[in-house]
Simulated assay, not measured.
Amino acid sequence: MRDSEPVLFSIGEVRERTGLTERRIRYYETLHLLAPRRSEGNQRLYSQHDIERLLEIKRLLESGLSLKAIRERLDDRTPEVEWDAEAYFEGKRIAHGEAPRHRSLYPLRDRAQIIRRLSRDDETEEKH
């Protein structure tokens, strides 16, 4: 691992660091409260930022806020993460041994950035 690459944690390590169950962590992901990276095998990989966010969600829930109120509060501070089906299926294809069709889309956060990246990749492929 290079020095510039962030340390990533498995869901089991995140469970130990946050006291949350794996099921609860995945549930928060389905609510779009966090977006962990994925390995080539499609395993969730969490950053220190993800762990801090989970701890904040836990603290806010304990203080009486609803998940809806927490999402609104977190969305005010961070750009909305665009959940893109193509990125999901790209991970599935890689997990089944296919070559990636695109370079990584991380850390793109909105549909416009993703479309520009994919268009640029398509133009590069056409030139070759």
Results as ranks from 00 to 15, higher is better:
57 I>P: 08
95 A>N: 05
85 A>T: 12
114 I>Q: 08
92 K>S: 07
76 D>W: 04
2 R>M: 04
115 I>A: 15
82 E>L: 07
99 A>F: 08
102 H>I: 08
12 G>D: 08
32 H>D: 14
37 R>V: 05
58 K>L: 06
76 D>F: 08
16 E>T: 10
62 E>Q: 14
34 L>Y: 01
113 Q>D: 13
54 L>D: 09
30 T>F: 02
64 G>N: 07
111 R>G: 01
2 R>T: 04
99 A>S: 14
19 G>I: 04
114 I>T: 07
100 P>H: 11
7 V>S: 06
96 H>F: 15
37 R>C: 04
71 R>C: 01
49 H>Y: 10
1 M>F: 10
76 D>N: 11
54 L>T: 10
21 T>C: 05
7 V>T: 13
117 R>N: 11
100 P>F: 10
78 T>E: 15
72 E>D: 10
56 E>K: 15
9 F>I: 02
2 R>A: 09
48 Q>Y: 07
7 V>R: 12
57 I>G: 09
103 R>S: 13
48 Q>G: 06
49 H>F: 11
83 W>S: 13
49 H>Q: 12
68 K>R: 13
39 S>V: 06
13 E>G: 10
5 E>F: 11
66 S>T: 15
60 L>R: 14
77 R>E: 15
57 I>H: 07
127 K>S: 13
8 L>H: 02
33 L>P: 06
81 V>W: 05
36 P>T: 04
120 R>F: 06
36 P>G: 01
103 R>A: 14
62 E>A: 15
107 P>H: 05
40 E>T: 09
86 E>K: 09
117 R>P: 00
36 P>R: 03
128 H>W: 09
127 K>N: 08
95 A>V: 00
114 I>C: 01
66 S>N: 02
18 T>Q: 07
60 L>I: 01
63 S>V: 00
105 L>S: 12
17 R>I: 09
124 T>S: 11
58 K>H: 11
95 A>L: 07
64 G>W: 06
94 I>N: 10
122 D>Y: 13
7 V>P: 00
106 Y>M: 03
9 F>V: 01
13 E>Y: 02
47 S>C: 01
22 E>G: 12
2 R>C: 00
96 H>P: 00
112 A>K: 14
8 L>V: 12
21 T>L: 06
108 L>M: 13
33 L>Q: 05
88 Y>F: 14
113 Q>S: 15
65 L>W: 09
8 L>S: 03
73 R>G: 00
22 E>A: 11
76 D>M: 10
18 T>C: 08
5 E>C: 06
112 A>F: 05
63 S>I: 00
53 R>H: 08
96 H>D: 14
58 K>T: 11
53 R>V: 13
86 E>F: 11
25 I>Q: 01
85 A>W: 10
29 E>N: 03
29 E>G: 02
97 G>S: 07
14 V>R: 05
77 R>A: 15
